[in-house]
Design a protein around this nucleic acid. Sequence first.
DNA 1: GTTGAGCGTT
Length: 299
Amino acid sequence: MAEMYIRVAEEENEEPMEIPSEDDGTVLLSTVAAQFPGACGLRYRSPVSQCMRGVRLVEGVLHAPENGWGNLVYVVNYPKGRKMDEIDASSATKIKRGDQKTSDLIVLGLPWKTTEQDLKDYFNTFGEVIMVQVKRDVKTGNSKGFGFVRFAEWEAQGKVMSQRHMIDGRWCDCKLPNSKQGPDEPMRSRKVFVGRCTEDITADELRQFFMQYGEVTDVFIPKPFRAFAFVTFADDQVAASLCGEDLIIKGVSVHISNAEPKHNNTRQMMERAGRFGNGFGVGGFGELSPLIEPKLMDI
DNA sequence: GTTGAGCGTT
C-alpha cells in the first residue's frame, strides 16, 4: 500500500495533524503517541450513526474501520479522559500530597484455604477491589497465609485498615505493607525499576502500558526471568513521578522505584566512581555479578 | 499430608 496519512486531532473540531500509516494500512499507537503524548487510542464520529466509535486496537496496532480510514478526523483518547499535560500537572501535586491514592494492603492471618476469589468477595463489600493476591509457595501452591488487596477508593482502604476482619473463620488484619511505610526518595533518572513482574508480562506490554505516562525509550527484562524489569522514559520527570507507585499491569501489582540502588555496595560505588572518571576503568574491578549488573547500565 | 508471625521471587 502506498504511503498514507490519517487525520488526527486532540478534539473533534480542532485542526487535525496528519499521521503516517504502516505499509499494511494500520497505524501504530506509538506513532500517534509520538505526536500526542499519553494517547491510548483513537475514536471517530461515524457518518452513519453519528455516534463516536472506537478504533480497534490490538497490541499497539490501530486497525482501520470497515471502509478504510477515509478522510475522517480521528480524535485522540487519553487514559481516564485526561490529557498528558493534565496528568503532568496532577502528578506534580500528587508528589506533595501523597494521599488520596490507594496503595496495596497486606492481609495477615488468612486461613490456608482462602482463595483470591474468597478475598475479592469479602472485600468487595467495602468498595471496588481492583487487585487481590494470595501469596503461595511456588513449589506446593500452598497459601502462605497472607495476601494483598487494593481498593479503587481511598475511603474503602481507610475503613478496611481501621478494623479487624473475620475471613473464613479467622481474624485477619489489613495494614500498609512495610514496603510502603517509608516513601521512596526520588532521583534524577530516566529509568525506573519495575519490581514484582510476573513472567507473562512481555516487554511489548510494558512499553504499551508505560506509554500512557510519556515516551518510552527502552524496556529491559532480564533473562532468565527474575521478576523485575527496567523501563526508560525520554523525560526524567515522568520517571520521577512514577517512583513509589504500585501500578497494576494485567492484574499484577508491580512496584515502581528508581533504577539507582538505595544503598550502594562497595563494588557498585567503586564502579560508579570509575564511570565518573576518577581514573579507574570499568574493567578494573573484575567482572560484575550478573545479579547487580542491570542496575549499573546506562542510568 | 505439618504451620500461625510475618511482609510482595530486585
